[in-house]
Design a protein around this nucleic acid. Structure first.
Lengths: 329, 329
DNA sequence: ATGAAAGCGCTAACAG
DNA sequence: CTGTTAGCGCTTTCAT
């Protein structure tokens, strides 16, 4: 191992003609110090280009100022915006962000968790969507979950998914749709997306229509997803409305509809869910239910801070959604 | 500071009736060990739920297995896919990823860099696009740059931007466009995007047409960007082709064109740059120049590994681009 | 207002 | 094959 000799506290102390303690005090601005020594120490630091070694400090304080993020992937309009928001909030609160793309692979999620724990992170924000329930509980690490019911004692930040499902379904019903199909995760995946389904089913039932949900898992390969939507139009030629549980699926539905010879919104109306900035930019014509992503990020960091401070955090924080107008529904 | 008493090496040693050294040896699978002790130590670890403290190890080895990523934001089709790819490659090579969204703010970039250095990261991959040249050079940290000329001695991974610019411009010329306008960063921003402009200018010059480039900086607020494109159609009603330096700008051009009453591709042809998966999914009709994002990520990690290993890394790695067909050009 | 010394948890000479 | 010892760079009692 190469010994890249680093400038350390001791060197600064030697140059300034004081003890390590004093330099440490200057560094942390703690305790009584004469202006004169402060000055001298600062000069010595400058001169040596001193850069404190966070690792050594961490070893002592048992604090890393590192927060892990475990989500399926950052390459997604929703998760990308969310993680960017989280990173920003965390940064403002003095934390650095450790990325963990689980790719919806439970095994990889476990591994990541283990690695992040090894790194002695101060906290964890999770939003991966898996069947399996990871051993997050084994540890007493501060954790916040986003849009996922992980375990009873772990706080969850979520948008008002049920309300969103209502808004979406009602919109299609109001537009005169009678054969509305929904897409969502398999029922055993523990995400709050399931509340969107619940609302859909409730409203369809009230309206006296059958509820039909096509399973589209997050990590289903793209080609397979496309096939599912093609099949949807095949199996249900009567469909005149689609409520997709996220915007990328809505886009696939739109493409499949066009390929099946339907015009949107004349023949079929489509509404999505998420309303991330990038989707709004690239596909502004999509009508969708928008989640307050930035606020969710802020709420999550807020809750995490409370947990880290040892305060009893709220168990659940629900944020409002809204319908944004496009031309597809 | 709360003393959450952690199980440590010493406890395991005590329980197993051996020395710390032996436990350390078992942990790292180093040196000669009898099967019997190995067994006993493993049992003790199990029993105590021992989890090695990476910080302590890092302090000794001077290695953190942490690599910092400094890009404008992860909330972008190109950067999102790139960072996801980088994270995956780094993970496979035993590194964890530290996120650093500089938001194209030179000051924030400096801060991030400083913080990452404090965290004793093993390497850095940068791709922020700023005017200012940060003090990356002060340090002898292994660094790789993506799509940005940072400094002479820092390796750069880039796609063949000049070729991409040629492909795009030629495509528009072939389609009969005579008034092609380009968008790009201001000239003082040190990104390889400038090569796209160069190719455009060269081909336009060859064809005997004037080259007109509208400045659209990455961090220009969205509303302002929209205004720029509206103005473009105002100032150049004769425009019949747009070569945008990235896909989101191409989307803005498309919207502005529609709002100006032009049909695409009948009245105006538009071609973008990047071809990220998310853009392909959400806006498949866009004709664009596709960068091999995954390969770029792999190449960057490859180069970084070489640097970390102390091998002399190549100074430049250029990867091929290709035109992907849409209906806008 | 400043310093000496102990120790955070782990690893690696060097002995035995 | 295993243990003793010193030390990675920093912080903090406890003295003075």
């Amino acid at each position: 191992m190469e010994k890249r000799r680093q400038v350390k506290l001791e060197d600064v102390a030697a140059l300034a003609g004081v003890s390590k303690t004093t330099v440490s005090r200057v560094l942390n601005n703690r305790g009584y110090l004469s202006e004169a020594t402060k000055q001298r120490v600062h000069e010595a630091m400058e001169q040596l280009h001193y850069c404190p070694n966070a690792i050594a400090r961490q070893l002592f304080t048992q604090k890393t100022n590192l927060v892990g993020l475990v989500f399926p992937t950052v390459n997604d309009p929703f998760f990308g915006q969310l993680e960017a928001g989280l990173d920003e909030c965390l940064y403002e609160n003095g934390y650095r962000t450790l990325m963990g793309n689980s790719q919806n692979n439970p095994q990889k999620e476990e591994q990541y968790l283990q690695l992040l724990l090894n790194h002695q992170i101060d906290g964890l924000i999770v939003g991966a969507h898996n069947q399996a329930m990871p051993d997050y509980l084994q540890t007493n690490l501060p954790i916040v979950s986003i849009e996922r019911a992980v375990a009873p004692q772990i706080p969850v930040v979520a948008s008002d998914n049920y309300r969103g499902g209502q808004l979406a379904t009602q919109r299609l019903l109001d537009a005169g749709c009678q054969h509305i199909i929904h897409t969502n995760y398999p029922k055993d995946v523990m995400t709050t997306n399931q509340d969107r389904r619940k609302a859909y089913e409730d409203l369809m039932s009230q309206a006296g229509y059958p509820a039909i949900t096509y399973k589209v898992n997050y990590d289903t390969p793209m080609e397979e997803k496309k096939a599912i939507f093609a099949r949807l139009f095949d199996e249900h030629p009567e469909v005149d409305g689609i409520f997709a549980d996220n915007d990328t699926n809505a886009r696939l539905a739109l493409t499949a509809a066009t390929e099946a010879g339907r015009r949107c919104p004349e023949d079929i109306k489509i509404i999505g869910f998420d309303g991330a900035d990038m989707t709004r930019l690239l596909l502004p014509e999509l009508t969708t239910i928008q989640q307050p992503i930035q606020e969710m990020a802020e709420a999550a960091v807020e809750l995490l801070k409370e947990e880290i401070a040892g305060e009893p955090a709220d168990q659940y924080r629900t944020l409002p959604v809204k319908l944004v107008e496009g031309t597809t529904a």
